[in-house]
């Protein structure tokens, strides 16, 4: 990839506390090959910009209808607005016109320079805390060249500051291999140890994910394993046991982060006009989270809740 090329970014957040050491800036890249049922950031999944309408903020002034050249916005029967994703080309005119910030576009094309300029603003805080840059998503490996260029340039400009990548591992090994020299820490998801269950819960099997984890470990990468905990889906002793066996077999991993399921992402699905597939699923109960923590700690891992 040449300089000045672009990636699809859906957020850049300073003061990121739990995505690696120190105070970090986390760059969220949009687009993910998985469709995890519990995903609390559904706006990060699709690999193109998406417009959403937020009912709570709409004052009903109709300016969005006037400015939308693609005629993608229409009044809905319930008095709200519907955005036709097929028609919307995410031009952003409705967002500019809306006085109430009721329209939002997730995902914008940004150059490496533009992203790094924003990241650099927090360099002082990163320096004071031993922090750095984290790429997250979506799935950062789904934009391999952009991700690589970001990390490489960041490392060069910030003189070897710390880098981390938060990933599902669902990518070709070559992608990870190329990133290896530029990444200090992989925050690596393990959603379910069983391929069939993994396919049912995320839409894809985990064969490549497990294989990539092993190759990263063999290559000497620093890995922290992150496990979402969803009651009745992956927190039973068998799944936990198999997960622990796998992580132990990697030999280099000492730490596992548990991410207890919560249903805070639900309203976002509604805004995006999508169905929430874990409706009615209770948030992880403290008792079961503790049981999982105790079990994994008993296997010799350093376990953190929430990362």
């Amino acid at each position: 990839m040449t300089r000045g090329a672009t990636g699809l970014v859906f957020d850049i957040r300073g003061f990121s506390l739990h995505d690696g050491p120190g105070l970090r800036t986390t760059v969220f890249l949009k687009g993910c090959p998985l469709r995890c049922r519990w995903c609390c950031n559904p706006e990060s999944q699709r690999a193109h910009p998406e417009a959403v309408w937020i009912a709570e903020r709409c004052i009903g002034c109709n300016r969005c209808l006037e400015v939308c050249a693609a005629r993608a916005i229409a009044p809905a029967a319930d008095g709200g607005r519907r955005i036709d994703p097929g028609r919307c080309d995410a031009c952003g005119r409705c967002v500019e016109a809306c006085p109430g910030e009721a329209l939002q576009i997730f995902g914008r094309r940004m150059t490496v320079e533009a992203v790094l300029a924003q990241v650099a603003r927090d360099a002082l805080y990163a320096e004071h805390s031993g922090g750095g840059l984290t790429l997250s998503g979506g799935e950062p490996l789904a934009q391999p060249e952009f991700a690589l260029e970001l990390l490489r340039r960041y490392r060069r400009e910030e003189k070897g500051a710390h880098t981390a990548v938060e990933t599902s591992g669902e990518a070709d090994w070559e992608v990870l291999e190329a990133l290896l020299p530029e990444v200090d820490l992989f925050l690596y998801d393990l959603k379910h140890p069983d391929p069939a269950a993994h396919r049912r819960l995320t839409g894809r099997g985990n064969e490549r994910i497990l294989e990539n984890a092993r190759r990263l470990a063999d290559a000497g990468a620093e890995l922290v394993i992150r496990m979402p905990l969803i009651e009745g889906e992956n927190d039973d002793p068998r799944a936990l046991g198999a997960a622990a066996d796998f992580v132990a077999s990697l030999r280099v991993v000492r730490r596992i982060d548990l991410l207890p399921y919560h249903r805070l992402g639900e309203p976002k699905y509604r805004r995006l006009g999508r169905r929430y597939r874990l409706e009615g699923k209770p948030a992880a109960s403290p008792g079961r989270v503790e049981a999982a923590r105790a079990f994994l700690a008993g296997c010799g891992f350093e376990v953190r809740i929430g990362g």
Partner: peptide, 22 residues
């Protein structure tokens, strides 16, 4: 901004029952 693990959203945009959960 409410941030719970990987999740983040603006508190005032959440529905009342989610606000109560937070």
């Amino acid at each position: 901004l409410i941030r719970v693990a990987g999740y983040s959203d603006y508190f005032t945009l959440l529905s009342r029952d989610i606000q109560l959960e937070i």
